[in-house]
Amino acid sequence: MARHAGAATEVRINFRCTASMCDLSIQDDGTPIASGDPRPAGATPSSGLASIRDRVRRLQGTAVIGPRPDRGFEIRLSIPRSTIEQLTTDSSGNA
């Protein structure tokens, strides 16, 4: 976070799973980057915030990434719990 949060003095990380969804929220109070695609010119899709969006979409989830209304930056990810459980089962071989 220190590398990307600018002048942030506080970072909040929240993770919550319900019966149907798992949500991750990361917020800071630093200087936000501009809206839109934060990828630098010439960067590949495998880098940075664009990669997070792509990976979450592949998991049937949603990603909201951008400046906060007051100050700072926020990343909010929601992924269906069933998708996460399937990945865990596939990688461990256990149910």
Results as ranks from 00 to 15, higher is better:
Pro38Met: 08
Pro40Phe: 00
Ala95Lys: 10
Ser35Trp: 05
Ser47Leu: 13
Glu74Trp: 04
Thr31Trp: 06
Gln60Met: 03
Ala63Leu: 08
Ala34Glu: 15
Arg81Cys: 08
Ser46Trp: 10
Thr18Ala: 10
Ser35Thr: 11
Val64His: 12
Arg16Gln: 15
Asp70Asn: 08
Asp29Met: 05
Arg68Ser: 10
Phe73Thr: 11
Phe73Cys: 05
Arg12Cys: 07
Pro40Asn: 00
Ile65Leu: 15
Pro69Lys: 02
Val56Trp: 01
Pro45Glu: 02
Phe15Thr: 10
Gln27Ile: 06
Ala41Gly: 03
Pro40Lys: 01
Ala95Phe: 05
Ala41Gln: 07
Gly6Asn: 09
Asp28Lys: 12
Pro69Phe: 05
Leu59Phe: 06
Ser35Glu: 08
Arg16Trp: 04
Gln60Glu: 15
Pro45Val: 00
Ala19Asp: 15
Met21Pro: 00
Gln27Glu: 13
Asp29Gly: 08
Arg76Ser: 07
His4Gly: 12
Ile52Phe: 00
Met21Gly: 07
His4Ala: 13
Thr88Val: 02
Ala95Met: 05
Ala43Pro: 13
Cys22Val: 03
Arg58His: 00
Gly66Ala: 03
Ala43Ile: 09
Leu49His: 10
Leu87Gln: 09
Met1Pro: 14
Arg39Cys: 05
Leu87Lys: 11
Gln27Cys: 08
Ser46Val: 02
Asn14Val: 09
Pro45Cys: 00
Met1Arg: 03
Arg58Ile: 00
Asn14Lys: 06
Ile13Met: 02
Arg68Met: 14
Met21His: 09
Phe15Leu: 12
Ala5Gly: 12
Ser25Trp: 00
Ala7Ser: 15
Arg3Glu: 03
Glu10Arg: 14
Gly61Thr: 09
Ser82Ala: 14
Gly48Val: 05
Phe15Asp: 06
Arg71Ala: 09
Asp54Lys: 13
Gly72Ser: 08
His4Pro: 03
Ile33Lys: 03
Leu59Asp: 13
Ala19Arg: 11
Pro32Glu: 07
Val64Tyr: 06
Gly61Ser: 03
Ser20Cys: 07
Arg68Asn: 08
Ala41Lys: 11
Arg57Met: 01
Thr88Ile: 02
Arg3Asn: 04
Ala41Phe: 06
Leu77Ile: 14
Ser25Met: 09
Ser25Val: 14
Glu85Tyr: 03
Ile33Pro: 03
Leu49Tyr: 13
Thr62Asn: 13
Gln27Ser: 14
Thr31Gly: 08
Ser78Phe: 01
Gly72Phe: 09
Thr89Gly: 11
Val56Leu: 03
Val11Glu: 15
Thr83Met: 02
Asn94Gly: 01
Asn94His: 06
Ala43Tyr: 13
Asp37Lys: 13
Ile84Gly: 07
Arg81Thr: 04
Phe73Gly: 12
Ile84Val: 15
Asp70Met: 04
Pro80His: 11
Ile26Cys: 10
Ser20Gly: 07
Ala43Trp: 12
Pro69His: 05
Thr88Tyr: 01
Arg76Met: 07
Arg57Lys: 14
Ile26Thr: 04
Ala5Lys: 08
Ile33Arg: 10
Asp37Pro: 03
Gly72Ala: 02
Thr31Asp: 12
Ile75Cys: 12
Ser47Met: 10
Arg58Glu: 00
Ala2Cys: 09
Arg12Val: 12
Arg76Gln: 09
